[in-house]
Write a protein that binds this DNA or RNA. Structure first.
Length: 464
DNA sequence: CGACGGCTAAACACTG
DNA sequence: TCAGTGTTTAGCCGTC
């Protein structure tokens, strides 16, 4: 039940050829069957391959090939990369996305300005298709990150990485979980699949002591960002629940991701060679599962942002909309380092707090559809605290998920309407995304990487 | 120095 | 019975 509804919500049946068909649906205008996104030519892709590595960065996270999915034990092969872009967005809105149109323009304009935002957007969205049929059909290495050619990319990166492959990822468990969940088409994963995703993307854990699984579960249980969704009728295999990201905390997680601290340098991160040099290290991000530069995480962040913003128009009232970049209080990127660790900024709550009328989030829908989690949220202590933790929220046994969180800012508009009303703000979203992309491109001032120290520098184990 | 975030370990209960 | 899952507690470390 839960699964079915989740799948319905994300816009497609995951079965059958699932990925490709769903991707087609997401890519094509349902009315005209015209492609919503003009995919660049192969030549373009190859050109980009020569000039940037950012796609390599995005690949494993955003659009791993279905083949890879199948290989992954934990990650059920029911995701498509593009889902992340338009998965929860009505196709019509995807079609109306200024981003899509701008991409059309840019992809045909032949603009080779490396710092051109269109180019960046194009690159990113190209990469968003990595997991889709285009990825499968395209012989371009860009679209075959993990396929035949991708293997070489990976091996190449691994060769560069050396020991770093076994380095601890610079992400916190909550972020790992978040990424795993966000990468799932249904935006929810069982613990096992979360394990699988982490293992797949961060080989470090494959050789790490199993304690990390405990940590994952610990995070899921304690971190308020994650919510448990009963599989209920949909349970086909095994025990356990599905876990999803609480939409209310999604911005927090994204900010956390954006602000994640990283090791500043790693031996394998070879100096960039091509013009968009700042992209170069990004190649290794999720292939290494470690050793990121801050620009790398910005890339990841940009991915996440784009994953949920342009084209995937956020409805400020729709918790299902990952983030509304147009809202200044949504993806709040504070310059205050103190806030970097304070994910509980009330503005987040304001922006993303679900209204009772906007409980159309995947989770809320699930909840309303009868798959009551029955667990509400526990009194999370780890992760992202809400300033508005009410007594109700602290009561882990209150089953009223949809109204679990007190409302602070109401969205006066019904979901559907609000979506339309927000469209003029897409420019702002694009600007936001552009900012992230500029970060991604290394066009940022004063990378104070030196300020940041590796969180994972402490030796594994042996601590106690 | 304290608060806080994060990680790890452990214990326990529940469930398939 | 067992393994997986979920929860809780405790302690430690690093950062601010």
């Amino acid at each position: 039940m839960a699964n079915e509804q989740l799948r319905e919500e994300v816009g497609g049946d995951e079965n059958e050829t699932g990925s490709s068909q769903t991707l087609s649906r997401n890519l094509n205008n349902p009315q005209t069957q015209e492609p919503l996104l003009q995919l660049p030519s192969l030549n373009d892709c190859e050109k980009y391959q020569q000039t940037t590595d950012v796609l390599d960065l995005m690949g494993p996270i955003i659009g791993m090939s279905p083949d890879k999915k199948a290989e992954s034990p934990g990650v059920v092969g029911e995701r498509t990369g593009l889902r992340g872009v338009c998965g929860t967005l009505p196709e019509a809105e995807c079609a109306a996305s200024p981003l899509a149109t701008s991409l059309d323009r840019s992809s045909s304009s032949g603009d080779e300005e490396l710092t051109n935002l269109n180019w960046l957007h194009e690159n990113l969205l190209q990469n968003f298709t990595l997991g889709g049929p285009e990825a499968q059909s395209s012989p371009s290495p860009l679209f075959d990150i993990e396929g035949t050619n991708g293997a070489s990319v990976i091996s190449s990166a691994t060769a560069h990485a050396g020991e770093s492959v076994k380095s601890k990822p610079p992400f916190s468990f909550s972020l790992l979980i978040y990424m795993a969940i966000e990468q799932s088409p249904s935006k929810s994963l069982p613990v096992k699949d979360i394990y699988g995703w982490i293992l797949e993307h961060f080989p470090y854990f494959s050789s790490a002591p199993t304690g990390w699984k405990n940590s994952v579960r610990h995070n899921l249980s304690l971190n308020k960002c994650f919510r448990k969704v009963e599989r209920s009728l949909g349970k086909v295999n095994g025990k356990g629940s599905l876990w999803c990201v609480d939409p209310e905390y999604r911005p927090n997680l994204i900010q956390a991701l954006k602000k994640q601290h990283f090791p500043t340098a790693h031996s394998f991160c070879t100096p960039p060679a091509s013009p968009p040099s700042a992209f170069s290290p990004a190649r290794h991000l999720f292939l290494q599962g470690c050793s990121l530069k801050e620009s790398d995480i910005d890339a990841a962040t940009a991915m996440m942002l784009l994953n949920s913003a342009p084209g995937h128009h956020s409805d400020p009232c729709d918790p299902d909309s990952p983030i509304d970049l147009s809202r200044p209080d949504s993806v709040l990127v504070s310059s205050d380092p103190k806030q970097d660790h304070n994910y509980s900024s009330s503005s987040f709550q304001r922006c993303s707090s679900r209204s009772s009328s906007s409980s159309s989030s995947s989770l809320s829908s699930l909840d309303e559809a009868g798959c009551e989690s029955g667990q509400g949220r526990r009194a999370g202590s780890e992760g992202f605290h809400s300033d508005e933790d009410s007594e109700e929220e602290r009561n882990p046994r209150l089953p009223s998920l949809p109204v679990r969180r007190p409302l602070t800012v109401k969205c006066p508009l019904p979901v559907k309407r609000a979506r339309h009303e927000c469209k003029p703000e897409l420019d702002e979203e694009l600007k936001e995304a552009a900012g992230s992309l500029l970060h991604l491109a290394g066009i940022r001032s004063g990378l104070d990487l030196s300020k940041r120290t590796a969180k994972s520098k402490k030796p594994e184990k042996h601590r106690k």
